[in-house]
Design a protein around this nucleic acid. Structure first.
Lengths: 136, 136
DNA sequence: TCCTACGATGGACTGGATCCAAGTCAAGAA
DNA sequence: TTCTTGACTTGGATCCAGTCCATCGTAGGA
């Protein structure tokens, strides 16, 4: 998705070699890398890149709305570049594999007013859990 | 919920002062304490209790199915004693308050076979996010 | 080409959680 | 009741993910 780089440039994002490799690593469907994995892959192309820079860049991509944070297991957060298309996640309880999925219906509609406790409810995140084909 | 203690004893759980206070602290509806909060409240009754014991005990309660882990924010996990009654969570994006909620319908039914990628899907966790009345 | 404000660096630091060796004790046996 | 033993507890070390900060480097406008 090289137009991610275009979009960022169009927003006045100062372009550096580090930011470019981070944006390039986060590319494709069903990509859910941890910050450390992003750092490892970025460092394969640009060995001097520091972890702090990766964290900074990921944080900015998140606040720009280009990437979303996913934490399915209470361990390291994962970064999902598929932010322009609403979706939920299907997680394998065995190996941790994550797939993007698009359920039918609107989960927000399933929360009756009486169960909202006066909250202004804005979104619903759904995590489906099960076993992938490899984990039986 | 003193029958939690009864259930545990009935399962052959060795009863100690530490385990008792941890189980007593985790009592009531809409209780979602972090391990540190559990430790602080337990220590108010039993000052010598160590953090390791709190973690051990919480871990056992989870694997016994008496308590569930909730991680809504990527920070510390929270422990929810309301495990015997299926429910979802409504989280305030402002202050972090968590309420147990019971949506209508079955979220699992909204995931078509074509979106399951061969997984055997076992459960769906839904996290509703919004603002509570105090956070406008 | 030069300037400078913004970005990158890496090492220290934090918070949450786990590990481990040594000490303690609940509960069954006698 | 006392003994015994394996399970439980302790606290300090350690780990891991993430953040902070002082300093250095550089993208991009003048």
């Amino acid at each position: 998705m090289s137009d991610l780089l275009e979009r960022l440039r169009g927003r006045g994002w100062r372009m550096t070699a580090q930011r470019r490799v981070v944006a390039e690593v986060l590319n494709g469907d069903h990509v859910h890398l941890t910050a450390d994995e992003v750092h490892a892959r970025a460092a394969a192309r640009l060995p001097e890149i520091s972890r702090a820079t990766v964290y900074n860049t990921l944080g900015e991509l998140v606040s720009l709305g280009e990437v979303t944070e996913v934490s399915t297991d209470g361990r390291a957060k994962r970064y999902d570049p598929n932010a322009h298309r609403p979706h939920q996640h299907l997680v394998c309880s065995g190996c941790g594999t994550i797939r993007d999925v698009r359920p039918t219906g609107d989960p927000l509609a399933d929360l009756p007013t009486g169960e909202r406790f006066g909250f202004t409810v804005a979104e619903a995140q759904v995590t489906y859990r099960g076993l992938c084909p490899s984990c039986v």
